[in-house]
Design a protein around this nucleic acid. Structure first.
Lengths: 255, 255
DNA sequence: AAGTGGTCTAGACCACCCC
DNA sequence: GGGTGGTCTAGACCACTTA
């Protein structure tokens, strides 16, 4: 017995994608195309299910996913509205520099201060679980948003040949992308975050005064197997950057 | 016609809380109580719907909310499993003040600067999705480690009667614990983190100079249903505190 | 082949908003 | 009262896992 195959259904039931996802994308497309402006109301659910030829439960799943993406908001008794662009949902993971730039609609770029190989010190070797004296690649960049210096990113990692580091242009390239292209799957990072005063070198590079607040984030980034691969320290000018993240809390209710 | 009223149903259909939320809490409680260990399999969905006397759709909505909280994971064709400790602990769990104190072997305490009710402003009402003028409880504390002031925690939340706020001693009590005791399950928090210079008031309370680096963490803490419950801003003296977190860089990203 | 999660449907009733 | 979103149900079929 055929159940959901409705004659000239706009959505394909034999597609590999779930119907609710297709519906969500269809609605999202209409918004991106400008047919539905921010703040405007969507047709009632009971109209949409006819147009899309899906059930109300399925439609609501699609709408809910768009709420999670910050595209739509609902108002009980009034209707569904396209979200104002101001309020976007927080990212599920700590937002990277490039991702923040994309969200703000700004152009990310870098000045490369250092990009060269060096031998691992004892501390670095222990940190990355490699042999002392192994070849490390040091990368120090001033990171900019629309040309304004925002942070200094100082990282080092094993100088693996498959990374093709000699040909990489770090003024635009993403380290995560280079790793990914080399088949290295970065998975987790352990971080510490603190506020410090800017030292004179940092202050000069960022164009601020010494002693001004700096947000320092140290990260040890691991692959799927838990092997540490990158040690990264990023110093953000306090008045030019803000980290955003979401995290879950267990019912433990910490002390 | 009575539809969902099933004789001796474990869940109350006349409760103000949605059935799926009650179901999620019930399952969450079983896990917290140790009846379901990390890594163990839950009963099949078709068993659970009998025990809870709810429909499968409703049960699955509950299970899904527990996935978002990192409590459960599903495996197609195999079953539902309680998330492993590692997964529970790691996904974006920031270390709380009390947890840091415990790790360092220091004694956490608080000076209460403010603990009183007030009416919600328009901004606060919007932030917490409540009516303007609703009763809010304001709690401002100087948080100390071994008697040394480390941060100023300024929070507000609806002054619910079940919290028994008039009898709470906030010099030692934990807000999370009070919420938990009142049956409120805090689940997720969205936060922004930035470095700022200390204003004169903050500086005085922390015993530092104005302009010194301050780590400011703003959090909007939600319950398991995604309802915002607590707005919290914590200002840490930059040289006395360090946040630690670990996060994953998986890019699942539905839609 | 049996068991289990994943998706989908059609219909019902409730809560809220606005006229 | 009529329209709209919010919740819930009972049942069906599909996809994956395991034996």
């Amino acid at each position: 017995m055929v159940k959901m195959d409705g004659a000239v259904a706009p959505l394909q039931s034999d597609s590999p994608e779930p119907l609710w996802l297709q519906a969500a994308k269809a609605i999202s497309r209409e918004i991106s195309a400008g047919k539905l402006a921010p703040g405007s109301r969507l047709p009632p659910e009971r109209d949409l299910i006819d147009r899309l030829a899906i059930s109300r439960v399925t439609l609501r799943r699609a709408l809910q996913s768009l709420v999670s993406s910050g595209v739509l908001v609902s108002s009980h008794g009034r209707g569904w509205y396209v979200a104002m662009e101001a309020h976007q949902e927080f990212p599920q993971t700590l937002e990277s520099f490039s991702e923040t730039a994309a969200r703000l609609g700004l152009k990310a770029s870098s000045d490369v201060l250092r990009a060269e190989e060096a031998s691992a010190t004892l501390d670095q070797a222990e940190e990355l679980s490699i042999a002392p004296g192994s070849k490390l690649f040091h990368l120090v960049r001033i990171r900019k948003l629309d040309g304004v210096p925002v942070a200094i990113d100082s990282s080092y990692f094993p100088a693996l040949s498959e990374l093709k580091l000699s040909t990489a242009d770090f003024t635009t390239a993403s380290l995560f992308r280079i790793m990914s292209d080399a088949g290295i799957e970065l998975s987790r990072a352990e971080s510490t975050i603190e506020a410090q005063g800017a030292d004179t070198t940092t202050a000069k590079h960022l164009g601020i005064e010494a002693g001004m607040p700096i947000l320092t984030m140290y990260q040890l980034i691991e692959d799927i197997a838990g092997r540490p691969l990158i040690s990264s320290t990023i110093r953000y000018a306090g008045d030019r950057y803000r980290l955003r993240t979401s995290f879950s809390r267990l019912s433990k209710a910490g002390v």
